[in-house]
Simulated assay, not measured.
Amino acid sequence: MKERLDLAEIPREKKISKNDFLERYVKPQKPVVIEHLIDDWPAYKKWNIDYIRKVAGEKTVPLFDGRKNISSEYKFNEPHLHMKMAEYLDLLEQGPTSYRIFLYHLLREVPALQKDFEYPKVGLRLLKQIPMLFFGGENSKVFMHYDIDLANILHFHFHGSKRCILFPPSQTKYLYKVPHALIAREDIDFTEPDFEKFPALKKAKGMVTELQHGETLYMPEGYWHQMTYLTPGFSMSLRAAPRNLPHLSKALYNLFFMRHFDNLMRQWKGQKWIDYKNRQALEKTNDRDKVS
C-alpha cells in the first residue's frame, strides 16, 4: 500500500458562537470548518460561475499557471497571462486546467458584489479592506505556502468542492521550505508525495478537509496550506492581523524586506537563484531530518 501524508480531519462545526470560536479555535490556534456561517449572505444563494460570468464577464483578469512558478522569469506573485473573465470561466467548464485566478480584487472591479456579503461577528478584528477572490478549474492546485502577512484567515468556498491540506508552523522543518520565500518546494505533490526524494515529509503531521459550497475554513496565523480544486470553483478570504507579536514582526519582515530581496536576486541571478534555493530546501531539510 502506497504511503501517504499523516493527515487528520479538520474539525467541523455546524454553527458556533463567538465565544466558543475564540476559546476552542482562535486562542489555541486550531483550524476548523464552519458549515453554516454564511447561510444568510446573499452570496450563499447567488454566487456561482454563471452569476460571475453575468456580472463580470467583460473584466480582464490575471491568471497564474502553476507549472511556471519555479521559473525566474516572473516576479513574486506576478501573473503569467491575462484573459477576459468570461473566456476564463469557459475554460474552467471545458475541463481540467492549471490556470488560476489568485488574489484578485473582483469586488472592487464589480462593486455590486460587495452587497452580497458581510463581515462575520466571530471575535476576529477583520480587516475592512475589499476582500480578494481565488478561482480554479478541476484538478488545479495551489502550491503549499503560508501567507505573507501571517494573518488569521476566514476562507469561504463557492461553487463545487475544494480539498485543503494544512500544516501548523511547527511542521515547517519537515516541509522543504524554500529560503527567502513563503513556499515549499513546488515539485512536491502533496496529494501523492515522493517520500524517497522528500523523506522528511513522513514526519509531518497535518490536517485535511474538503470544502463544499458555502462552507468556511478558519486558518490560524502562519498555517501552511495547499489547495486542490476538485471541481471548478472559487473562494473568498477575509483576514485579521496576527495576534502573536513574533508573527506580526515576521509579517512586517516578509512585507518590507523578504519579497523585495527575492525579486532583486531573481533579477540579478535569474534561474541560478531559483535553483540554488531549491537545492537549499532539499539539502537542509534532509540533513535536519537525519540529525533528528
Rank of each mutant, 00 (worst) to 15 (best):
E9W: 04
I183K: 00
V55C: 14
S17Q: 09
I274W: 00
A184R: 00
E118Y: 13
G233R: 09
K284P: 05
K59G: 02
D90G: 03
F198I: 13
D40N: 15
R266P: 01
F257I: 05
D187K: 12
D90H: 04
L255V: 09
D289F: 15
L245T: 13
P246D: 12
K2H: 11
L81G: 06
H213L: 08
M85Q: 01
S170C: 00
P79F: 09
E13C: 12
A112N: 02
F190N: 06
K27C: 13
K68R: 03
R279H: 12
K173S: 11
K46C: 07
L106M: 14
L126H: 11
M1H: 04
T231V: 01
D149C: 09
T228A: 00
R4H: 14
R279W: 10
Y119C: 03
M1L: 05
R243W: 01
R12C: 06
P62M: 00
M144Y: 02
F257W: 09
M144E: 01
L255A: 03
R243I: 08
K284N: 13
A204R: 04
G206I: 11
H247W: 08
N263M: 06
D50H: 10
K141N: 06
L81K: 15
V61R: 06
L217H: 14
M207W: 14
R163Q: 15
F143T: 09
R185T: 07
Y218L: 13
G66R: 03
I183S: 05
Q212Y: 13
Y229T: 03
D189L: 05
P179D: 04
Y44R: 15
I10P: 13
T97Q: 10
K177M: 09
E35N: 02
N152Q: 12
E215S: 02
L92D: 01
